[in-house]
Design a protein around this nucleic acid. Sequence first.
DNA 1: AACTTAAAGGATAATTATTATCTTTTAATA
DNA 2: TATTAAAAGATAATAATTATCCTTTAAGTT
Lengths: 133, 133
Amino acid sequence: MNDYTTILREHNLKATPQRLEMTNALFMNGHVTIERLYELMLKKFSSISLATIYKNINLMLEASFIEEVKLPNAKSVYELTKETHSHLLCSKCDKVQDIVLNLTDVTRRASNAANFNISKTDLVLSGLCENCS
Amino acid sequence: MNDYTTILREHNLKATPQRLEMTNALFMNGHVTIERLYELMLKKFSSISLATIYKNINLMLEASFIEEVKLPNAKSVYELTKETHSHLLCSKCDKVQDIVLNLTDVTRRASNAANFNISKTDLVLSGLCENCS
DNA sequence: AACTTAAAGGATAATTATTATCTTTTAATA
DNA sequence: TATTAAAAGATAATAATTATCCTTTAAGTT
Ligand SMILES: [Mn+2]
Ligand SMILES: [Mn+2]
Ligand SMILES: [Zn+2]
Ligand SMILES: [Zn+2]
């Protein structure tokens, strides 16, 4: 019984082999699209249904066990929930990278300027990665 | 001949009544989803095809005449291109607001930390707007 | 270890979102 | 006014996502 068995059960999700492999695929591959995840899953479960992927993605999203990252000009990617972070997207090689940034100053300024109570920030910085520039 | 006639032509797009009304709808309504834009257009062009909306949205995106804003847990909205800005999204009433924020400090920090050449930032701050909090 | 059962998986139909195709209409230019 | 490439509208095709239904199974219970 690995880590994710417990976490899945804590969210009232049965720890099925398919789900454990999904979490493993996400852990190993980082940010993945639905179709990439389906490909990865097919390697281990040759007859898994795409519907199973979608159903589990949605259940795991509801449980905040995973998160969706919406990217400009690209399909959404999914990842295991971790520390709050921002994303770097390379517009040449499409690589997505995590970056932990302190955004308190920005959110404070926004909050003050617009009388807004900010609870979440989604930031994607696009450009060229180390390799591509 | 209003402003947008010229701008459309500068992008090699014919200034059709449908396109002028699309730009007008975007100008008047700010951030709109595809389906909302379709509803708005139907008021003026009762037999406009949804395909026309999609085709024009895509052409206008290519021409950078409009921009898509991807929002967490919501459908994308579209708006006329204006000064670079960030967005505030109210998680209660779903209102989307523009906010001009200086992000040079954040992008500089990210750029240095990850050796990344940043050319664009997409920031959505979610929370409660003035009315809802 | 076998029994029970709600939950989950797989197959596939249905729905929704978006794009492609084709014919008719029209904006722009001469 | 005539010409023509582009755009509109109708609708078919495709892609993405969800729903349904039947079978299998994880996780408790005896
Ligand atoms: Mn991430
Ligand atoms: Mn905006
Ligand atoms: Zn790159
Ligand atoms: Zn609000």
